[in-house]
């Protein structure tokens, strides 16, 4: 049975609005900063957080355009590279000189990138079913994304944004399960939906996705293999935990060399595969993930290890 945790809703100011978050547990010490994946929101960590050590807080954030965070201004495309700058923005807001990162999917990619850019400011990384982003190999991906983005931006500017297509909640649960290849099963879908749906004004029984439709067309930062290895060299010897869902392709052969650099001569590197785990392994197999995450946290962020 999952214990219920106290949390406080936080709003971190940003020039374009705010970054919304939930700070679970201890407010006296620097928390773990948890970052969700693409098109998700901080609800992704709902089932994992109650299983983590209760002496350390966890600050989960919604990335811009997701959950309850402000959208980027009109005309500004979403870009993974820009998202990385959210991490120092949060650190600055709370006066942290170091950060402990836990990221799923896009959040894990951001953690890897940030750790390579500013290794001296990172004390540990937990990466959930990801290490490196997928490659950009086809220019037509850019074509689709740019045209899709401009179309969505036009839709929002036309005022039709007020009411996107709406569905019943059960239909959305179904859609989420189907689109995620059941990585977010229907019975857990509400964890993802509670921060990204709004009630329809036109159809009282229906809801619609309230996240920014433009985030679907974000620009990936292409980390080619040579660059990935160089980034890993900058991170080396950091406490780094990678958890892979055995049924998920996201931590594949492309990551092997990078992982061998991260793990080389590094007793603080850990890799585990959760049997039967899909991409949202931390959501549908939270207990198994916690089995690896809890000792990792206790080891690298023991009680009272660092003050705010």
């Amino acid at each position: 049975m999952h214990k219920r945790l106290q949390y406080e809703e936080v709003m971190i100011p940003a020039p374009w609005g705010h970054i919304a978050g939930r700070w679970y547990g201890n407010r006296a010490d620097r928390p773990i900063l948890a970052i969700h994946g693409w098109l998700d929101n901080l609800g992704t960590f709902d089932r994992l957080i109650p299983l983590l050590p209760d002496y350390i807080g966890v600050l989960c954030i919604d990335l811009p355009g997701h959950g309850r965070s402000s959208r980027l201004p009109p005309g500004v495309p979403y870009n993974v590279y820009d998202y990385v700058f959210i991490i120092p923005r949060v650190m600055k807001e709370f006066g942290w000189s170091k950060v402990s990162l836990m990221g799923h999917s896009l959040g894990g990619v951001m953690s890897f990138m940030y750790a390579a850019m500013a290794p001296s400011t990172v004390d540990m990384i937990i990466s959930l079913d990801v290490l490196l982003p997928r490659r950009i190999e086809d220019p037509s991906k850019l074509t689709k994304d740019i045209e899709g983005y401009l179309l969505e931006e036009r839709r929002q500017a036309d005022g039709t944004e007020h009411e996107p297509p709406s569905f019943t909640l059960s239909k959305l649960r179904e859609t989420l399960a189907r689109n995620s290849n059941n990585s977010v099963p229907q019975h857990l879908a509400d964890h993802m939906l509670h921060r990204q749906v709004a009630k329809s004004n036109m159809y009282p029984e229906k809801v619609f996705f309230s996240r920014d439709g433009r985030v679907k067309f974000y620009h990936i930062f292409d980390i080619e293999n040579g660059l990935a290895l160089e980034m890993a060299r900058r991170i080396e010897k950091k406490p780094y935990l990678v958890i892979k869902g055995s049924l998920s392709p996201f931590v594949g052969p492309r990551c092997n060399e990078t992982m061998s650099i991260l793990s080389h001569d590094n007793p603080n590197f850990e890799f585990y595969e959760v049997e039967g785990g899909k991409h949202h392994v931390h959501l549908h197999a939270a207990e198994e993930c916690a089995r690896y995450i809890v000792p990792f946290i206790r080891n690298h962020r023991p009680p009272r290890s660092s003050k705010l």
Binding site: P15, W16, P77, N79, Y81, D82, L150, H219
Partner: peptide, 21 residues
């Protein structure tokens, strides 16, 4: 660009498309 936003070379592709539109 609005405050807080970053300049990315690839975004100029959007600029060209906006002008064309």
């Amino acid at each position: 660009l609005p405050d807080g936003c970053y300049y990315n070379s690839v975004d100029n592709l959007y600029v060209i498309r906006l002008i064309m539109k």
